[in-house]
Each structure stands twice: as structure tokens, then as C-alpha cells.
């Protein structure tokens, strides 16, 4: 705005800073009016306050938080459209919900305004939910990530209520699957549908699944050898961690499946799985010889590997953790 001299703008912004209820947000808004206003307003802002690393959709804070979120999102959108750097710090969308509230749709829409412009470093979505109905969660996610938008989300972390099924997880895997590289699931139901959705995430490099639960009688369970089944489909995996809470034999990795996993995935650096009693020292030695890149290796339930003196230095191609292995192996590490 050329008509106001810089020194007057400086006076106005210093007045704003000392009297506004939300001075930094107001100064950010002022800084986006024009390049001249930016030059005068920006030095008065604490840049750390706008190194926003995440936008959060959550219950509780009420109308004031909603107003702040909508305004902040709007300003970030303008920043992006102006090619300014405020959005460069934005890395994740966080969703933490226990119940469905009236303000959530508006908050989700505000977040979508930012997401649709693809901030350069926005790569992660973190979800923690319980009690809220899956359909309500999916409705909100569709507002933030409508199918018509292209996203660059590569990391997905979901901590859900496993007793409510996998609808939310599956919905997101299907929506974001093509770009996903890193998926973490905390509390999931190991059923056939989830397994298929995971298998379709062909670019996945890291899969961390903890707190799995076998489904009830009304849900088609995952086929036997689910972990090996996944490994066969996800050729880019370098890190695979998969553990169940109520694990029966069919969900554990067998001798043959473990060999198949390390054969199919020679680039694995991290492997942590539940195994059954068929995994013995001979199987482990096979793993050692094939998984040359392995750095972290943890087997739960490896009760058959107890012999002494069967390991040589040639058997150990990497260093890392061990669970249930023989003491001679441990000494070599």
C-alpha cells in the first residue's frame, strides 16, 4: 500500500502489537496485505510462533480454538499463495478425537484449505481416536482429504479402538495408499480387509503394527501367514514390525515364512515379529546369511533357539538386538 509511509505503518503495527488480543496473528494478517506491509509487520513478529509444525483437529478447546484455527489456516493459505515461507514448517495434520462435536466440520474444512495447496513439507497424518463412530471419523477425513485432491502424505499413524474395527484405517489406506511410505498402526483388528488394504500400499517402506487383535467370528480373519503375505506384496519394505496381543499360531511367523520374508526383502534393516516354535537356530542362521542389511532384529516367541556353540562369526552379518537367541549368538554380537 504505497500511500502509507513505512514509519506510519511501523507506528500502526507497534500499536497493534501492544493492544491486540492476538497480536502475532494480527501482525501476520497485516504482513500479508502487501509487500510494504510485510516489510514493516514481519520484523515485529516472533517467527517461532509461526513455525507451525502441525494443524490439529481436536475436541474440547471450544469456539475460541475454532476461530483461531480457521484464522490461522486462512493466513497460512494466503502465505502459500503469496509464496511466503510460513507453511514450510507445516509437517503434519493431527487428529485427536473422542466424540463428534458441532465445530469439527468447520475445523476440518479450515484444515483442508491448507492441505489442498500442498504445503511443501506436509507429509504426515497422526490420528488418535476412541468412542467416536467410524462413520463420523471418515466424514471428517473426507473433508480434509477429499478424493478430488492430490495429496503428498507419506506417513500415516493411527491409534484407534480395535474393538470398533478397521474402517477408518482402511478408508485412509485406500485414500492415501499410493503415496504412503510409512504406516504405523496402534491397535488394529487383523482381518482380511485390512490385510488387502495394506497390500495395496505398494510404495510402503516402513510398516509398524502393534497391538493387533484377532477378529471375532463375524469378521473374515486374515489368512494364515499374514506377515509373510504382506512381505510378498510390499517389495519396498525396509522395516517391518508386526505384533499381536492375542496371537494364535496362525498369526505367528513360521520357519518357512521367516525365510521367505528375508529372501523376498533383502533390503530389510528392521524386522520385529512374533514367531512360532518352528523357528530354530538353523532358520536364524539362514536369516543372518540373507539379511545383510539388517540392523535391528527382534523375534518374539523364539523358544527353539537355545543351543550353544552353533554360531560362528560368519553367521553374523550385522549387529543388532536379539530376542530368544542362544547365548553363543549373543556373544558374537
Amino acid at each position: 500500500m504505497p500511500h502509507l509511509p513505512p514509519e506510519i505503518l511501523g507506528h500502526i503495527f507497534r500499536c497493534l502489537k501492544s493492544t491486540s488480543r492476538d497480536p502475532d496473528t494480527d501482525l501476520l494478517a497485516a504482513s500479508l496485505v502487501s509487500s510494504l506491509w510485510f516489510m514493516e509487520a514481519w520484523p515485529l513478529i516472533d517467527p517461532a510462533l509461526f513455525q507451525v509444525s502441525s494443524l490439529t483437529l481436536k475436541n474440547g478447546p471450544g469456539r475460541l480454538y475454532l476461530i483461531h484455527l480457521i484464522r490461522l489456516s486462512s493466513l497460512l493459505v494466503e502465505s502459500l499463495q503469496s509464496g511466503l515461507i510460513h507453511c514450510d514448517h507445516l509437517k503434519s495434520i493431527r487428529i485427536g478425537l473422542v466424540y463428534f462435536g458441532n465445530n469439527l466440520r468447520a475445523s476440518a474444512a479450515a484444515i483442508h484449505q491448507v492441505v489442498r495447496l500442498q504445503p511443501p513439507n506436509l507429509r504426515r497424518i497422526e490420528i488418535l481416536y476412541s468412542y467416536i463412530r467410524s462413520a463420523a471419523m471418515i466424514e471428517l477425513l473426507d473433508i480434509i482429504f477429499p478424493t478430488c485432491d492430490v495429496t503428498k502424505i507419506t506417513q500415516l499413524s493411527i491409534s484407534g479402538d480395535k474393538t470398533r474395527g478397521n474402517e477408518v484405517t482402511i478408508h485412509l489406506l485406500e485414500r492415501l495408499g499410493p503415496t504412503l511410505r510409512d504406516v504405523s498402526l496402534y491397535g488394529f483388528q487383523l482381518d482380511a480387509t485390512l490385510l488387502e488394504a495394506l497390500r495395496r500400499c505398494h510404495g510402503l517402506e516402513c510398516l509398524f503394527a502393534k497391538g493387533g487383535w484377532l477378529p471375532g467370528p463375524d469378521t473374515p480373519p486374515a489368512p494364515s501367514g499374514a506377515v509373510a503375505f504382506l512381505a510378498a506384496a510390499l517389495q519396498n519394505l525396509t522395516s517391518l514390525s508386526f505384533s499381536m496381543e492375542n496371537c494364535d499360531r496362525e498369526a505367528r511367523v513360521s520357519d518357512g515364512q521367516l525365510r521367505e520374508i528375508v529372501t523376498r526383502l533383502p533390503g530389510l534393516t528392521h524386522l520385529a515379529v512374533d514367531v512360532d516354535f518352528t523357528v530354530n537356530d538353523e532358520c536364524l542362521r539362514f536369516v543372518m546369511r540373507h539379511a545383510k542389511e539388517m540392523e535391528v532384529f527382534a523375534l518374539v516367541g523364539c523358544i527353539m533357539s537355545r543351543e550353544e556353540g552353533v554360531w560362528t562369526e560368519n553367521d553374523v552379518g550385522w549387529r543388532g538386538r536379539k530376542v530368544g537367541m542362544s547365548s553363543s549368538f549373543t556373544r558374537l554380537l
Binding site: C15, L16, T19, S20, A30, E78
Partner: peptide, 20 residues
């Protein structure tokens, strides 16, 4: 200057860049 700058600041308060 102070009076008008203060008044302008109060009008900017809470506004979007487009509104300003």
C-alpha cells in the same frame, strides 16, 4: 499520529488480509 495509528490498529485487529 498516535491517535490515528491506534485507531487503525484497532480496526485491523481480528481482520483478514482481504478485509484489511
Amino acid at each position: 499520529v498516535r491517535l490515528t495509528a491506534q485507531e487503525m490498529a484497532s480496526r485491523i485487529d481480528g481482520k483478514s488480509p482481504d478485509q484489511i
